[in-house]
Amino acid sequence: MGFGRKRKVVPFKSAGELDAMEAAGAVVGRALVAVKEHAKPGVSTLELDEVAESVIRDAGAVPSFLGYHGFTGSICSSVNEVVVHGIPSSAVVLGEGDLVSIDCGAILDGWHGDSAWTFGIGEVIEADARLSEATRLSMEAGIAAMVPGNRLTDVSWAIEQGTHAAEKAHGRSYGIVDGYGGHGIGREMHMEPFLANEGAPGKGPELVVGSTLAIEPMLTLGTYETDVLGDGWTVVTTDGSRSAHWEHTVAVTEDGPRILTLRP
Rank of each mutant, 00 (worst) to 15 (best):
F3R: 06
R5K: 13
R5Y: 09
K6I: 14
R7P: 15
V10Q: 05
P11W: 04
F12E: 09
A15Q: 05
G16F: 02
L18H: 01
E22V: 04
A24C: 07
G25T: 03
A26I: 00
V27H: 07
V28R: 05
A31P: 03
K36N: 06
V43D: 04
T45A: 12
T45V: 11
L46G: 03
E47C: 01
E47I: 09
D49P: 12
D49R: 07
E53S: 11
E53W: 08
E53F: 07
S54V: 05
I56A: 02
R57I: 06
G60P: 02
F65A: 01
H69P: 00
F71Y: 15
C76Q: 12
V79N: 09
V84R: 01
I87G: 00
S89Y: 09
S89P: 13
V92R: 13
G97M: 03
A106T: 04
I107T: 11
H112I: 01
W117D: 10
A129P: 01
S132F: 11
T135M: 12
L137I: 00
S138H: 09
M139D: 02
M139P: 02
A141F: 11
I143N: 00
P148M: 07
G149L: 10
G149H: 10
N150D: 00
L152D: 03
S156A: 13
G162P: 06
T163I: 15
H164E: 08
K168S: 13
K168N: 07
H170A: 14
S173C: 08
I176W: 10
G186M: 07
R187K: 11
L195D: 01
E198Q: 14
A200R: 12
G202L: 11
K203N: 13
P205V: 04
P205L: 05
V208D: 05
T212Y: 06
I215H: 02
P217N: 08
L219N: 06
T220I: 07
T223I: 09
Y224H: 15
Y224E: 14
D231W: 11
D231M: 10
W233H: 11
T234G: 09
T238K: 13
T238S: 13
D239F: 03
G240C: 08
H245R: 05
E247L: 14
P257W: 04
R258V: 08
L262S: 07
